[in-house]
Amino acid sequence: MSWIDIAAIADIPERGARVVKTPVGCIALFRTGEAEVFAASNSCPHKGGPLAEGIVHGQKVTCPLHNWVFDLNTGEALGEDARIATYPVRIEAGRVLLDGMAVGKRSAA
């Protein structure tokens, strides 16, 4: 793994999300708690809704277009046969780090 420093955790609103553009497409960083962040594809497999714009609750997000709900631990849609890709992410000293390998970057900048 090669961890890339993305931003301070405070840059993401609690129970909110922000988008990171990557070679594998837009990834949303969901801040589900004070010091808890998940990374997953920003695009809903249903109609492409921007998941970072959805309401974040528990460890889930609801797509703003048609209310599909995704579990951010697994990426699985509740009650639907669909899932979104999830990516390794961690918090270190108040910074959010994303795994560069997983998002299509060969090496950390």
């Binding site: 840059d11 993401i12 988008v19 553009k21 990557t22 070679p23 970057k105």
Partner: peptide, 12 residues
């Protein structure tokens, strides 16, 4: 705006 843009940094 996006929090970061990893596509801009030159891939090799």
């Amino acid at each position: 705006a996006p929090l970061a843009d990893l596509t801009l940094e030159a891939a090799e």
